[in-house]
Amino acid sequence: MPLELRINWIKCDAHGMCAELFPELIALDEWGYPILDPRPIPPELEAHARRAVAACPTCALALERVPRRPR
């Protein structure tokens, strides 16, 4: 099952660390809050995603296994 990024918006404090570490799927809006790419994380980028999750200062970012959506 692919992994997806989830953000707890109440916890997120716009530190922007996640976007620094995982720019492939995370961008920042003009206030520094992350904008997530909705695509599931390609397996070769999973390590980067994990690193971004571990770096988030407020533990707002999480990785979740999601069942593959029917097309």
Partner: peptide, 17 residues
């Protein structure tokens, strides 16, 4: 780190790490 001091060349994750 907590002061969110960072520059283009020294991003935050570097200081945090």
């Amino acid at each position: 780190d907590v002061g969110r001091i960072a520059t283009k060349r020294v991003p935050r994750f570097l200081i945090d790490g």
